[in-house]
Simulated assay, not measured.
Amino acid sequence: MSPRAGNAGPHTLAFVESPVQLLNVLEWAHAHAPGVGLTLVVLSPIDPMTRGQLRRMSELAREEGYEVRWEEARGGAAAPFQTIGGLAGLLRRASRIVLGDPFSRYVQLLLTITRARDLVVVDDGTATMEFVGQLARGERLVRWHRKGGRPAPRDLIFAPVSSSARRKLTPGERRRVEIFSSMPIADTPEGVTVTTNDFGWTRARFGPPRITKGADMVGTSLVETGVVDGDRYLEAVQSLARTHGATRYFAHRRETVEKLHRLAVETGLEVVRPDLPLELIARRGPVGRTILSFPSTVVHTLPLALAGTEVRVAVCDIDPAWLTQGASPRASGFLSGVTGTARGVHRLSAVSLA
């Protein structure tokens, strides 16, 4: 048993499905509960790049002394039932649950089992901003990039579970809810405790980085989620790289191989597929003096992770003309809000495309 897992005190169970979620659980433990009896449960996705980053993050968590339990949660039709059945006992005994994605149907299903009176939501990127707003307004939990309109039949079938999860994530006399975030929280739900993630663990564990003269660019999955047109995105990347002298493109873990191959050929950028979340990659270095990004989580997190260095984070707005016809009606306003609320970044106007 790991040294921290055997400590006395309330046992904490954390559920993560992405490398960033796991990183933010480590940040929460560093800031709030050093020495806590923490078990990290990785609900492993199918995507190979995400799995690779999660393996590396799991190694870091074990080095910190935490117990990590890897679940092949999507390894076939029977996997969800086996995973939930195997975790039921842990869920009922845990006094605190930490989760990274309140929109996840997997997590929502697990929340129906727990008796924990202490729930913590750590960042899952910009989705946290939408979650907090929906919780404050008492709305159903729906990801921001999902198209508006009537719920799909699958949503209706799952609605009772989603409603139960929303109730579990609402604080009350017998339940404490905390949101641990580096994102700007405008509307704090009544009774919810909001604490700041300043990436203290990342800064203590890595760096400071060696800074190069050029610029690096951060990729986004806005094309993959159907928000931004693929051709427009490539044109914007090419224009930004040419204007700012970028030489490397750090791919988002969800970007497709075909898109990245085309991007490398058409822009001449060196495509890098990181083995860890970008906050750790940048902190370890080497990293460009300027980091270029479109609206995404990193415009909020990188200035914190790179605090005390001379690296400048610059964010380029998304022109509404780049959006696909199937993009959610909320997409443009949400992306503008992500950029407008970022602190410590240099804001660039949208790239003008021919």
Rank of each mutant, 00 (worst) to 15 (best):
R4M: 11
G6V: 11
N7R: 14
V16L: 02
N24D: 12
H32W: 11
G37V: 00
L38M: 05
T39K: 03
L40T: 00
E63V: 07
E64Y: 05
Y66Q: 01
E67Y: 09
E72T: 15
R74T: 15
A79I: 14
F81M: 15
Q82D: 10
L90R: 12
L91E: 08
R92A: 13
A94E: 02
S95A: 14
S104L: 05
R115G: 06
D118F: 07
D123F: 02
D124I: 02
G125M: 00
T128I: 06
T128F: 02
V132R: 02
R137W: 13
R150D: 12
A152M: 12
R154P: 08
L156W: 13
P160A: 12
V161R: 04
S162V: 08
S162A: 15
A165R: 05
K168R: 13
P171R: 07
E173C: 10
V177Y: 02
E178G: 04
I179E: 01
F180G: 00
M183G: 01
I185Y: 07
I185W: 06
T188L: 06
E190P: 05
G191Q: 09
T196Q: 12
A204E: 10
P209T: 14
M217Y: 00
G219F: 03
G219D: 01
T220N: 03
L222C: 04
V227Y: 01
V227R: 03
D229A: 08
D231Y: 10
A246S: 03
T247H: 06
A251W: 00
E255T: 03
E266H: 11
G268S: 07
L269M: 06
E270T: 06
V271I: 10
A282Q: 03
V287F: 05
G288P: 01
R289K: 09
T290W: 04
I291E: 01
L304H: 06
L304F: 08
E310N: 13
T324L: 13
S328T: 08
R330F: 14
A331T: 12
S332D: 10
R343K: 14
G344E: 10
L348W: 01
S349A: 04
